[in-house]
Amino acid sequence: MPLMWNWSMAERSDRGRPVAFRGGGFSPRPLGVVGPLVFIAVLAFWEAGCRTGLIPPLVLPAPSEALAALAHLVETGLLWKHLGASLQRLLVGWTLGTLLGIAVGFSIGLFSLARAGLAPVVAAIFPIPKIALLPLFVVWFGIGEGSKVATILFGTFFPTVVATYGGVDNVDRNLIRMGQSFGLSWLSIVRKIILPGALPAILPGFRISAAIAIVLLVAAEMIGAEFGVGAYILLAGSLMALDELLAGVAILSVMGLTVNWLIARLERFLLRWRT
């Protein structure tokens, strides 16, 4: 009945009506300028707030003050000392943690015995905040570089293990069967099929473990560190030097962005076969 009525309506208006558009939405468009714009607006508002006294210096120093603290670090050359010490710890800790993590992740993924024995241990230790273990690390590895590297190492090891064996588990079984059907050796199958097949899961794991490493840097440099970005932030905090604190946090943030960018480049290179 309503259908009939619609027909008669259409007949009366001779040219018809266009069908109303109902699609669209639900698909975010990239708007490149918005991000930087919001960032700049927030900074400008913040600076203005500090200049006018709306935000008292005790609560939050102006961005320009943090910038000045940063400039002071550059002038005195201390920036490179702090960065150098931190990057060395990050690099050694993260590299060792990642290599060990991949090795253990592969054993769990490949060997039933390792899976039965190690997977529950990893699951049990993974959620422990490594900061809580810091005193233990100090007893085991001393107050020198050992405990700092160990903190970062342990922090990066577990997420890498989980990402790696998840990746190994997800490798297409048909590809492995193909390798076997062509008589490929066990080592060839692991190297040429399982490793590249697990990479799409391992590389995002790198992003997570690198972020964790930077988070742990501050904790690692709590003990006996003279130089390092984390030590600098801790000192600024204990001196209530909030401008230096913000400068240090900004350095950490830039470190995080840089690492993220490097890993994105690595992903683009290693996973260029993907769509």
């Binding site: 590809l175 069967r177 059907s181 008589g183 060839s188 590249p196 993907r274």
Partner: peptide, 27 residues
């Protein structure tokens, strides 16, 4: 002697055409 051709092709997506062929010769 006994060589398969699979329904889903079972090509390694990270190797080129040439690399996929070379895979079975490398060992």
């Amino acid at each position: 002697p006994l060589t398969y051709i699979f329904q889903d092709f079972a090509l390694l997506p990270w190797r080129t055409v040439e690399g996929n062929v070379r895979l079975v010769l490398e060992d």
